[in-house]
Structure formats: C-alpha cells, structure tokens
Nucleic acid binder design. Structure first.
Length: 424
RNA sequence: GGAGGGAUGGCUGAGCGGCCUAAGGCACCCGACUCGAAAUCGGGCGGGCGUUAAAAGCGCCCCGUGGGUUCAAAUCCCACUCCCUCCGCCA
C-alpha cells in the first residue's frame, strides 16, 4: 500500500511509475476522496472541540446547581451532526482504502520499464550448462525409472497436480530442506522459524495476497482461514501491528509447504513436478531499516544463490521489468536453474524488496535512531523452492545408464549416498 | 465441544459516568553527583489523524474490536474477537 500523503504530494510521479505496471489505477479518484476526507475531518474536529467545551461547562453548572436543560438540548443536536460527519469519514476512508489496497507498488528507479517476461534483463549467469553425449531425459522419465515419484496415486488421493514422493525421492527432498536451513542459519545468520501454514484474512491482506489473489488460494470457509501460498505470509506477519524493539535487520528462515490453486495456469507445462498445487519451499524474510533495504536486497540474493552454487547447479539471475513484477514488489530478481531435460530455465526463487508496501498494510514499524517511529522495509526470497530444485538435480546429474550423481554438498544429508541407481 | 476468568501505555498495575489532560512502579533516554560506574536526586518518555511549505504550537481520536445509552464513557449496556484456567476428546 502506498502512502496517501505521498500520492497527494507526488501525483505525477505516481502516475508515471504506475503506467509501467499492469494495474489501471485511478489516482484522481484517490485524491478526490482524500480532499473530501480531510474536509469532513476538519469540520468534525471543530464541532467536537466545541462540544467538549460545552460539556465541560455543563458539568460546572450542574455542580453549581443551575438548570442545564436548554444547553443540553442544543448540544444534543451538535452530537447528531458529529455522528453524521464521522459516518461520512468512515465511509470515505473505507472507499479510499479499497482503492489503495488494490494499487501495486511503485517500481524502483533501477527497474527497467517493460511489458512482460520478454523484457526482463539477464543480470548474470553462473556455472556452465551441463552437456551430454546422449539424449538427456527429463525429470519425469528419470524419476519414474528411479522410483522417486508416484503421480498416479497422488491424483487418486487429491486430484491432478499434487506431488507424491517415494523412498529416496522423499528423502532427497528432506535432505535438501535440511541442507538449506542449516546453510541459512549457520552461514547466513537467519533465525529458523516453524510457522503456521494456515492463516487469517488479515495476515493475507498484510502481505498483499488479498484482496487481489483470492481466487489463486485455497480457502477454508468454515473457519475463514487460508492455506499459505508461500512462507512469506506467516513470516512477514510475525511482526504485524507491532513497533519492533529488537535491532534491525531481523532475518528469518522457514521451511513450509505452499499451496496454490494455479487457477489460470491450465494448458501450461504441467507434467511432473514443475507446476503443482502443493510444494515445499525454504523461505527467507528480512525486516530492515529503510536506508539499507537495497543493500540488504543484494545480500538476500547472494544468500539464495549460495544454495545453488554449493550444489553446483548452473543458474542465471533475472532483473524483472516493471510489467512482470508481482503486485507488491518495488524490485525483484528471479533465479532460474538450467534444466537440460527440458532444455530450458526453471524459476526456483524470487527475491523481492517491498520497501514499505507490506509494512504499511501490516502496520510493521520500528523506532529509527532518531527516535522516530517509521515503517520498516520488508524483503523476501525463496531460498529455494524444492520441486524444481529436485528437477534440476536429477536432470543435471543424470548419466547414460539412467543413474543420477548427487551433488557433493548434499551427500552428508543422505547418509553418504553418492548416486541414485535405477531399480532393476 | 462444555464451564469459568480476563483484556488499560514497552512491561507491571490503579481507576468502575465529569477533578483521567490515565496514578504509582519497572525499563529506557537526558542531566546532576562521581576519576568512572552503581546507588541516589531532577527532568523526559505512546500511537494515529487534521491544521502547516515544514517544524513548533493547537485541535481531534485511541484504555481488545464494533455498536449503543448520555450534554459527557476506560468507567454503564449489547455483540464479537483473542488470551488464560479447568473438564472432555486427541497427535
């Protein structure tokens, strides 16, 4: 959510920056409402002040034993006017808040203007793409031969698009989770959190999933709760409605499952693990001082890429253009792994700086060194998402005989196992 | 699921229609004392909105949330939410 005051003072800038995003925003309507809001508040405050004065006098007169019936009648009328104005203010504020909640964040000046994914910039590539002297298989073929998944039975249980890992497939995923958590805690200084996976409407609104993305999420109507689409939601909401007293930055990491309806994704490449309704993820979230947020953003990116480098997987970093960024982001990098079986790149992480966008919605503040209360900046990034990481490990490590050589860094988490071998 | 108790400022805790512009204590900040510190003493110490170019100042609002009664509500009434204790069920 943007600051109305900022919009009021910089309407041209806001219009220009938002033009490069895909949300049509009626800046004029917001400003007009703001005008009316402030007029009603000023008038209401004036009346309230008058009433307070009179009420005080009534108390004094009564104590002196005088008759106050007439003056009370007049004050009563004043009270009705005040109530009407208050109702008007509330209604205007509701309307204004709705508009503001559906307004995306302003892109940072370092973000290229652009329409869609075609306009994203490749910032850098790391590692070399694996080559083979045989025709590489995709993860579905590899996983089936190795007995790692069972999509058919998963569909019988939950319908299409839910993963089911078996044996070493399940263990491989668990090893990766542990490897990533250990890395972020021990080397990168994050505090590990095990949060709720189901959250209330206020939490979803705080991080910006609601109201816009309601149709993309699983909802439990009986309790009015939502299944989290990302660990970002419970982690960022950890400090909702708080003035943080602990020193910044605060760095949190959590493993969580994520649930997404993928309502609009039909027809896309949906085979196997690449796009599923439920997946696991290790998520990084930071609460930082505003002046440091772009430096912290780069550090966050480095924490995420460290995972990939330690696993020896080729990746590239994309700087998203204004039109391809998620709703709340001011700046965002995507990390993509090379997947030779698909002969393409797979997104495994988004590292975003939200500036004060989420903090303002969720009311997360701190006291800066000058003693002033202000909104923090929030950042988050996947560190990283699991299914596609598994895909990349399988496809990159595959051998001519159908076995898969595992990354060295992972072996301690698999009891020293060096490769996965097809069942005979 | 059943029964009871509670929600006041960063924490603790008084207040139960107008003197609440919310006492006292703790924590924190500044100053004095001190070679320095502790102790002690003095002062400061919530948030939001409006007004303003901005600040100061001034005004309005906030005692879990939302309504109501009243000239006037932390205080009275209603509803809701959350927390705690006990019982039941249960990983």
């Amino acid at each position: 959510m943007l600051d109305v005051k900022f919009i009021r003072e910089n309407p041209k800038l806001v219009r220009a920056r938002l033009k490069t995003r895909h949300s049509p925003v009626d800046v004029a309507a917001i400003l007009e409402l703001d005008e009316r809001r402030r007029a009603a508040i000023t008038e209401g405050d004036r009346l309230k002040n008058a009433r307070n004065e009179v009420s005080k006098k009534i108390g004094e007169l009564k104590k002196a034993g005088q008759d106050t019936a007439e003056i009370q009648r007049q004050t009563r009328e004043m009270g009705e006017q005040i109530a009407a104005l208050d109702a008007q203010v509330r209604q205007i504020e509701d309307e204004q808040r709705q508009l503001l909640l559906s307004m995306p964040n302003l892109p940072h000046e370092s973000v290229p203007a652009g329409e869609d994914a075609m306009d994203n910039q490749v910032v850098r590539e790391w590692g070399h793409k694996q080559t083979f002297d045989f025709q590489p298989k995709d993860h579905v073929a590899l996983g089936e031969a190795l007995g790692l998944f069972d999509f058919e039975r998963a569909a019988r249980i939950s319908g299409a698009g839910f993963p089911l890992l078996v044996g070493l497939g399940a263990k491989l995923q668990r090893a990766l989770i542990q490897f990533m958590l250990d890395l972020h805690v021990a080397r990168h200084g994050y505090v590990e959190i095990a949060p709720p996976y189901v959250v209330g409407t206020a939490a979803m609104t705080g991080t910006g999933q609601l109201p816009k993305l309601a149709a993309d999420m699983y909802h439990v109507p009986h309790d009015d709760l939502w299944l989290i689409p990302t660990g970002e939601v419970p982690l960022t909401n950890l400090y909702r409605e708080e003035i943080i007293r602990a020193p910044l930055p605060i760095k949190l990491v959590a493993y969580t499952p994520c649930f997404r309806r993928e309502a609009g994704a039909a027809g896309q490449a949906t085979r196997g693990l690449i796009r599923v309704h439920q997946f696991d993820k290790v998520e990084l979230v930071k609460f930082v001082a505003p002046e440091t947020s772009y430096a912290e953003h780069e550090a966050l990116l480095a924490d995420a890429t460290d995972v990939l480098e330690r696993l020896g997987l080729a990746y590239r970093v994309l700087l998203l253009c204004s039109g391809d960024m998620s709703f709340g982001a001011a700046k965002c990098y995507d990390l993509e792994l090379w997947a030779p079986g698909h002969n393409g790149w797979l997104e495994v992480s988004s590292c975003s700086n939200f500036e004060a966008f989420q903090a303002r919605r969720a009311n997360i503040r701190w006291k800066n060194p000058q003693g002033k209360t202000e909104f923090v900046h929030t950042l988050n990034g996947s560190g990283v998402a699991l299914p596609r990481l598994v895909v990349a490990i399988l496809e990159n490590g595959q051998q001519a005989d159908g076995s898969v050589v595992l990354p060295e860094a992972l072996r301690p988490y698999l009891g020293g196992l060096e490769r996965l071998v097809p069942k005979t």
